[in-house]
Computed example of a mutant assay.
Amino acid sequence: MTRLIFSFAALLLFCGSTLTADEPIRHSFFVAGPNFTGIIDEDGKRAWDAGRPAARDGWVLPSGNLLIVWKNHVQELTRDKQVVFEYKLAAPNKELGTAQRLDNGNTLITELGTKPRLLEVTPSGEIAVDVPLKPETDNAHMQTRMARKLANGNYLAPHLLAFKVKEYTPAGKVVRVIATDLESLGGKAAENWPFTAITLPGGNVLVNLTHGNKTVEFSPQGEVVWSVSNEDFSNNPFDDSCGAQRLPNGNTVIASYHAKKGIKLTEVNRDKQIVWTFTGPERAHHFQILTTNGKPIQGKPLK
């Protein structure tokens, strides 16, 4: 049985070209997961293996190097696995959550524990910015996940058990809060823990809500403008919606972290139609779609 399952859309746009109904979608992607970390090609085969599993976040950089977050350290690896950048977890914190290579060359890293914080680390390993976080819990593993830097110089951090996505200034002041326990989304009972917080062109924020098995696009003010969940389908494709990516064609790819069998990645369009799924054995905590039908994703990945 094939490891990739495809649905067909009447007309899908990607990178300026048209995919017709008789041309199935094929993606290659980087995956950071509990049982494999590396690159899967468009045929669903392992094209590059980092050599160890259990990564939390990761990127294929423009250079072709891989920026990967493990529990206790962040590494930039060449394709032959030479370490060209590394940051190790600082005591007394317990684990690392995410990383992002910034335009200034620094690397944004989150540390979780007794001193939860966002860090900007220079290429030489020096801490250039240290932003204290307010996750509203002492549970280190649940304090935050996919924090990202904004164009205005602030930072957006999802706080799972607080049911909030918070925007921080470099001084650590919270200047915006997006609540994910809205009654319209099922309230706190739905366990809509925010995991990703992706700022889209135009200012909306795409948030994956893990145990809530929802992906919600909020306005900059925190109003729901679009969402997709298991309630929209009969086969419950989402199982712990952790990582997400918005593609240039407007489609959204969503990871199902808890899924040990069945669908691991699901791509839906704006009309909430499933247009692609990945069902291989590789589970996804986070991921990055790299190509579609042989064409590289254009622009910076929104993930």
Rank of each mutant, 00 (worst) to 15 (best):
L61G: 13
P201E: 10
G250W: 14
G105V: 03
D138M: 04
K164A: 15
V228Q: 07
A21L: 05
R117Y: 09
A151V: 09
I254S: 05
I297M: 11
I39S: 12
I109V: 05
T18K: 02
E136M: 14
V177T: 15
D232T: 01
S241M: 01
G125H: 07
T279E: 14
I254N: 04
Q82M: 07
N106I: 12
F278G: 00
W48D: 14
N230G: 00
D49K: 13
V60W: 11
P194D: 06
L206R: 07
L206A: 13
L12K: 14
V216L: 09
G58C: 03
V129C: 07
G250Y: 11
D240N: 15
V60C: 04
G187Y: 04
S28A: 10
P62K: 11
D240I: 15
G280P: 01
V69H: 07
Q288W: 02
F238C: 10
T215W: 02
K173T: 14
P170E: 06
V207W: 00
K295E: 01
I178A: 02
W193A: 00
Q221M: 04
L67S: 08
R145H: 09
T292H: 10
P53T: 13
V121W: 00
V216T: 06
G153N: 01
T210Q: 13
G172F: 11
L161E: 06
V216F: 06
L112C: 10
K261Y: 00
P296V: 07
V74H: 05
V129Q: 13
G250Q: 09
N293M: 12
G203S: 03
L200W: 09
L302A: 08
Y257K: 12
R52M: 09
E136H: 14
P201W: 14
T210M: 12
F278H: 14
E126L: 03
P62V: 11
P220I: 11
E23T: 14
K94L: 15
T122G: 02
K260W: 12
R246S: 01
C242F: 08
P296T: 08
V228I: 12
T279I: 11
L112A: 09
T107G: 00
Y155V: 04
K303L: 11
R148E: 07
L19D: 10
V129N: 06
L156M: 13
V224M: 06
S241G: 00
A32I: 06
T169A: 08
T210W: 09
T199E: 14
D232K: 09
K94P: 00
L19P: 01
T252C: 06
F14Y: 13
D103S: 13
K149V: 08
F85G: 00
L160I: 10
R246M: 03
P116A: 13
E86P: 04
S256C: 02
K272M: 00
G243D: 04
L150C: 04
K88N: 15
A9S: 15
Q221W: 00
L4M: 15
A244W: 01
F163S: 06
V83K: 03
T291C: 05
P24G: 08
W193I: 01
I39L: 09
K166Y: 13
